[in-house]
C-alpha cells in the first residue's frame, strides 16, 4: 500500500517537474512547480516527517512561489520575445549542464550506499527534530539565522532612500 503510494507520488513529482520545464507559459511553469512541492511534501509525510512536510508547504508553496507568481503577473506574457541564443552560449550551457548532471550522479551513487534501515523512522517528528537542531546542529542553525538576518538587513539597506 505504502509502496504504491510512493510510486504514485513519485510519478506525480517527476511528471510535474518535467511539465515545469516543458510548458511554454511561465505561469503554468510556476503552477507545476507548486504541484511538485506539494508532492514532495507528500513524500515527507510518507517518511513520517510531518513537520518538514508542512514547512515545505508553508515556506516554498505558500510564500516563495507566491512571490514568484506575483512577479510573473507583472510581466507582459503576451509578447513572446524568445531570441535565439548564439551557438557559443548553447555549447556552454550544454557543457555546464552535463557537469551538473555528473555531480548529481556522483552524489546519488554515494547516497545509495546508505542503507534505508539506518534512518530512524521518527527523526522527522517535531520533538526529535528540535532536539537535534538545538544540540547537535546548534552552530550551523544559528549561523544560518544570522545569515538570514544579514540578508534582510542588506535588502533594507539597498532599498532605503538616500
Amino acid at each position: 500500500m505504502l509502496l504504491y503510494l510512493f510510486y504514485i507520488l513519485s510519478a506525480i513529482t517527476v511528471g510535474c517537474a518535467l511539465l515545469t520545464i516543458f510548458s511554454k507559459n511561465p505561469v503554468y511553469s510556476v503552477l507545476f512547480v507548486i504541484a511538485t512541492f506539494f508532492s514532495i511534501a507528500g513524500h515527507f509525510i510518507l517518511l513520517n516527517a510531518q513537520f518538514l512536510a508542512i514547512v515545505q508547504v508553508i515556506v516554498y508553496a505558500g510564500a516563495i512561489m507566491v512571490l514568484f507568481l506575483t512577479v510573473l503577473m507583472y510581466l507582459n506574457l503576451n509578447k513572446s520575445v524568445e531570441s535565439s541564443k548564439p551557438l557559443l552560449i548553447k555549447i556552454a550551457a550544454m557543457v555546464s549542464g552535463g557537469l551538473l548532471f555528473l555531480v548529481l550522479i556522483a552524489s546519488f551513487k554515494s547516497g545509495l550506499s546508505i542503507a534505508p534501515t539506518s534512518v530512524r523512522g521518527d527523526a522527522g517528528l517535531i520533538k526529535n527534530l528540535g532536539n537535534t537542531l538545538f544540540t547537535e546542529y546548534l552552530f550551523p542553525f544559528e549561523a544560518t539565522a544570522v545569515l538570514f538576518l544579514s540578508t534582510m538587513a542588506g535588502a533594507i539597506t539597498l532599498t532605503r532612500k538616500k
Binding site: V27, L31, I34, Q50, F51, I54, V55, V57, I58, A61, G62, A63, V66, L69, T70, M73, L125, I126
Partner: peptide, 25 residues
C-alpha cells in the same frame, strides 16, 4: 487530531491565496 495541527492551518491558509491569484490573473 494531528500533532502539527496549527501549522497545518497556516499551511492551508498560505496556499489559499493561489485561488485568488490564479483567478485574478
Amino acid at each position: 487530531d494531528i500533532n502539527i495541527g496549527i501549522l497545518y492551518a497556516f499551511g492551508v491558509v498560505s496556499v489559499g491565496v493561489y485561488g485568488i491569484m490564479i483567478g485574478g490573473w
